[in-house]
């Protein structure tokens, strides 16, 4: 059995193919990168339209199987940027309809979590999902990913990218900030620290960090202070959630999970609470088609198909709205 997955929620157009065991046979992507500013939804969609057939062909060639051998088509139905989502949806509908095979609408957040669980083999983890669009702490409980904490305004990755833009660093800003912060001498400039129970807010921190830059503070020092503050906030809520849920596994996923400093901090907390630390392989931290294909496989096993008439994109589809029938 082969499931093909299409990812197109934001800047990545990805196609992945998995077999019946979830093994990744192909994972190809093309990433739109804006020349200046952040992701422009229409430009992202145009990029996806132009690259989707090439990416699809590449992925098929890697596996050596033909389209006729596919058993189902999965696509990320949301959440994400509507124009970008539509490209993946149109592609998926066309394939499923022509090949007369089931169409599977996948929640992008669920896919990140499921792929991380697949790699880590974690049984009942507390999952920390940190990316450009999401900042959530969640555990699976009675067929739903229950959200224990999340951002009240912008996502962690989004905050880093926005700061990066203000500092005229190339997109995405996160990795650049990490690189600069590593050069710091340990001078820490106080910044707002906003933790509300297990929820977080990053907008005040962003404003204050941008103001420091404007006032002429050293960029390396600001990057360091920004990272230290933001990551300490995340680590604190993770620690609170670990103490609250008493889970013994901590699993980190999403694009920001690739940050070494953040992983280091989370590892310390996991150790303090005798929890096993696991993280998605850096290669799959960002958006990818393989995670959609894998989650599609899980849906296919439970025979949860998406009829064409219900395959409209869902730009605001939350993680906790999905009923989880597997596990």
């Amino acid at each position: 059995m082969f499931v093909l997955g299409i990812e197109s929620t934001a800047h990545t157009l990805g196609v992945g193919i998995v077999d019946a065991d979830g093994k990744i046979l192909a994972d190809v992507k093309s990433v739109y990168s804006p020349t200046e500013g952040g992701i422009h939804p229409r430009e992202a969609a145009e990029h996806h339209q132009q690259s989707c057939l090439l990416v699809l062909k590449d992925a098929m060639d890697q596996t050596g199987i033909s389209l006729r051998q596919l058993d189902a088509i999965a696509f990320s139905q949301g959440p994400g940027l509507p124009p970008a989502l539509r490209v993946g949806a149109v592609m998926a509908r066309a394939l499923a309809y022509t090949l007369k095979i089931p169409l599977l609408g996948v929640n992008h957040c669920v896919a990140h979590v499921e792929q991380a669980r697949f790699f880590s083999k974690a049984e009942r983890p507390l999952v920390v999902y940190l990316s450009g669009g999401n900042t959530q702490l969640t555990t699976l409980e009675s067929n739903r990913y229950r959200i224990f904490g999340e951002t009240l305004d912008i996502a962690l990755g989004n905050m880093l990218d926005m700061f990066g833009r203000a500092a005229k660093l190339a997109h995405p800003g996160g990795p650049k900030i990490e690189e600069l912060a590593r050069k710091a001498d340990g001078t820490y400039l106080p910044l707002p620290y906003t933790v509300k129970g297990m929820d977080l807010a990053f907008s005040g921190l962003l404003t204050a960090a941008k103001r420091l830059l404007k006032e002429g503070a050293d960029l390396v020092t600001v990057c360091y202070s920004l990272q230290e503050t933001a990551f300490a906030m995340v680590t604190e809520v993770v620690e609170r959630a670990l103490a609250h849920t008493q889970r013994t596994e901590l699993l980190v996923t999403g694009g920001v999970a690739a940050n070494k400093r953040l992983r280091e901090m989370l590892q310390i907390v996991a150790k303090n609470h005798s929890a096993r630390f696991a993280s998605v392989p850096p290669k799959y931290a960002g958006d990818n088609g393989a995670m959609i294909a894998y989650t599609g496989l899980l849906l296919q096993r439970e025979q949860i198909e998406t009829p064409l008439s219900a395959s409209h994109v869902m730009p605001k589809w939350r993680l906790d709205q999905v009923k989880i029938e597997w596990h």
Binding site: G78, G133, L152, D153, A155, D320
Partner: peptide, 13 residues
């Protein structure tokens, strides 16, 4: 109002 301001809110369960 606070809940509707969060990320990706359509209608919460």
């Amino acid at each position: 109002a606070i809940e509707s301001r969060g990320r990706y809110i359509t209608e919460r369960i």
